[in-house]
């Protein structure tokens, strides 16, 4: 019973926290660029305004795909929040991204097509890394159920955590890897043919996706004391957001091929090294 209540509380609280996190992200970005920046709650205002706008769509398929995307992302996050299987959540979230790309393809806009292709390419780049990280987490934990994580894995899996940096950059649409939504190249790519309420839906879907990805990151840390545990988890998330903003503000955008290659080489490389170290450790060689 208490589990159900915690799950329900998480379902409501975490998306709100993600909105707040995006607000922090925008303030932080602004401060790094010597600007004042928007109010902390600006992402909520934006979403509120989008939902208040006229409903206009290019075609019906587009609406279905937007709805599918947000529902799938929500399901992925819900599976995670209610203590479900991480692998299930991972695949559902991947399907949400696919729906986003299909929504872009369903319009005949050249920019939508390019954005859809690039979105798929991004999925190709970061999902293997995310999958491997989830795999290694579950293997160490002995279970893929998200509520079964009660152990501190940070000291066992430091490299796998670092491998999450490009994943977070891609999902947060940050500078070196924001190719699917590259504003100056393909005019927000996948989002270009959406407006009003449906754009708001996609943004909400993006919040759920972020909630899931940041959720995975929080699994790395755990402590017996619930307060320390929560503090540690929040700290990791904040450090990641800070890193993402820092990298965003000190790099230009890379190109498609570069993104795939770098993310895969960096992410998979680090995770596999971590895996090998652990495997040696199992046989009692290092620590």
């Amino acid at each position: 019973m208490t589990d159900a209540i915690t799950g329900l509380a998480m379902l409501i609280a975490v998306p709100l926290l993600i909105g707040l996190l995006l607000g922090i992200d925008r303030r932080l970005t602004a401060r790094m660029q010597n600007r004042v920046g928007p109010p902390l709650l600006q992402p909520f205002y934006d979403l509120w305004k989008l939902f208040g706008k006229e409903r206009r769509a290019v075609n019906q398929a587009q609406v279905s795909f937007a709805a599918a995307s947000v529902l799938l992302q929500f399901t992925a996050f819900a599976v995670f929040a209610t203590g479900g299987d991480l692998l299930v959540a991972f695949f559902v979230s991947g399907a949400g991204n696919l729906a986003l790309a299909l929504g872009a393809f369903s319009s005949r806009s050249a920019y939508g097509q390019l954005g859809g292709q690039r979105e798929l390419l991004q999925v190709l780049a970061y999902e293997p890394v995310l999958f491997l990280v989830i795999f290694i987490l579950g293997w160490q934990n002995g279970s893929f159920l998200s509520d079964a994580f009660g152990e501190n894995l940070l000291y066992l899996l430091p490299l796998a955590l670092i491998a999450m940096v490009p994943v977070v950059l891609i999902t947060m649409q940050k500078s070196p890897f924001d190719i699917a939504t590259a504003h100056q190249e393909i005019v927000s790519g996948v989002y270009v043919e959406y407006s009003g309420t449906y754009l708001g839906l996609l943004k909400l879907g993006h919040w759920f996706e972020l909630a899931f990805v940041f959720g995975i990151i929080t699994l790395f840390f755990s402590a017996d004391d619930i307060v320390i545990s929560l503090l540690g988890k929040s700290l990791i998330v904040l450090v990641f957001v800070f890193l993402a903003v820092l990298i965003d503000n000190s790099t230009a955008r890379t190109t498609r091929g570069d993104m795939v290659f770098k993310t895969l080489a960096f992410g998979l490389g680090l995770t596999i090294i971590n895996l090998v170290l652990l495997w040696i450790d199992v046989s009692g060689a290092i620590w």
Binding site: Q33, D248, N249
Partner: peptide
């Protein structure tokens, strides 16, 4: 040109 390659921070520096 900094803005076109997605380097928003440098864009802001130049404009400052």
């Amino acid at each position: 040109i900094a803005e076109t390659v997605g380097y928003e921070n440098m864009f802001m520096q130049f404009f400052r």
